[in-house]
Simulated scan of single mutants.
Amino acid sequence: MQRWRSLDEMPADWGRCVLTIGVFDGVHRGHAQLISRAVKAAAVRGVSSVLMTFDPHPLEVVRAGAHPAQLSTLDRRAELAEELGIDVFVVMPFTADFMKLTPEEYVEELLVDRLHVAEVVVGDNFTFGKQAAGTVDTMRALGVRLGFEVDAVQLLGEHAVTFSSTYIRGCLGDGNVAAAAEALGRPHRLEGVVVHGDGRGKGLGFPTANVAPTMHAAVPADGVYAGWFTVLGDDALAGQRFMAAISVGTNPTFDGRNRTVEPHLLDFDADLYGKHVGVDFVEQLRGMRKFDSIDELVEAIQHDVDETRKVLRAETGE
């Protein structure tokens, strides 16, 4: 898969393509449906499939400081798009000037003159252009005039719930990581770097990796979770995943004030400081609470570890 940081990286001999457009935060099951439609349409036409996303998030430009919690990094989005068969992953810088493009300018200058679209695949609620004035009907009318087709896909959902990034953020905010995973098609992953903590977990017999999340990352509600810990990048441990009991919160038993993400890796203990990692949340075990004694806390952590093994073994069929 090719990755472009802007359309300036397009090759001079670029032909036509099938394009799908959106933020694609999380690349959830609804997004996967759009991407798969674009990949299949491109194969039928014998052209490239292109996914176009934006950076920063459009809301950050429309209303400074309004960046929603991020379900996935750009690198993670690209990785997931590649798994779904996309040929080209392009990141469009979302600027104040870009935001001012009218729907007609958006389509003519970007989609037709630059990308040479043969077909555009979008969700049926897609809007675009200045003040989001363009709709699917607008896109279809422009397609008739400018020579491309539009496939508007009804958003996927189950049990009267439409899968969306907003819905998934709500699930995470409630600590319902299992529902988030159902909508995503996989557990929610939080990425970050392992930093030094206060070392309290090690003193209790349960050492933790203190993970500093990437900027704007969607952190689940305070509580304890069963999940997986994976080292990312080109590290010698890259790709290996370890069972983890994950604490999210302020450590109220010790009157903590700073909110932290601290996975305790089961059956693994090594120097992880500075490593780029992914923390996948599978199931919430309990809420965060303040214990009356250290002994009571240690007993609860041991129970969390036992439950983590049970949950993850069931997930993997062991």
Results as ranks from 00 to 15, higher is better:
E105A: 15
L111E: 03
T53Q: 05
Y106F: 15
G129D: 02
T138D: 08
V23K: 04
R63T: 13
G30N: 02
P58G: 15
A133Y: 07
A118P: 00
T135N: 10
I86T: 12
E105N: 10
D25N: 10
F126T: 04
R114D: 12
L101H: 09
T73S: 14
Q70Y: 11
V23W: 01
F24Y: 04
T102P: 02
T138W: 03
V91M: 02
A64P: 11
L110E: 10
F126H: 07
R37L: 07
L101N: 08
F24Q: 00
H67R: 13
K130Q: 11
H31P: 04
R45A: 13
A141T: 14
A32E: 08
H31Q: 01
A133F: 06
M99S: 09
P58D: 15
L115Q: 08
V88Y: 07
T102Q: 09
D137H: 12
D137V: 15
A81K: 05
P68Q: 11
G129V: 06
T73W: 05
D25T: 13
R45E: 09
A96M: 07
V120Y: 02
E119P: 00
G30D: 00
A42V: 03
L115H: 09
H28E: 00
V107H: 05
V91E: 01
G123P: 10
A141W: 04
D55K: 00
L115D: 12
F126M: 07
F89R: 10
F128W: 09
R37G: 01
G65T: 07
A43Q: 13
S48D: 07
V44F: 06
I35P: 00
V90K: 02
K130W: 14
S48L: 14
T102L: 11
G65C: 07
R140P: 01
A118E: 15
E119L: 13
G46C: 09
P56I: 05
V122W: 03
Q33I: 05
A41P: 00
E60T: 14
V39A: 04
A78G: 09
D137K: 15
A32I: 01
G85T: 13
L110H: 08
R76H: 10
A32P: 03
H116D: 07
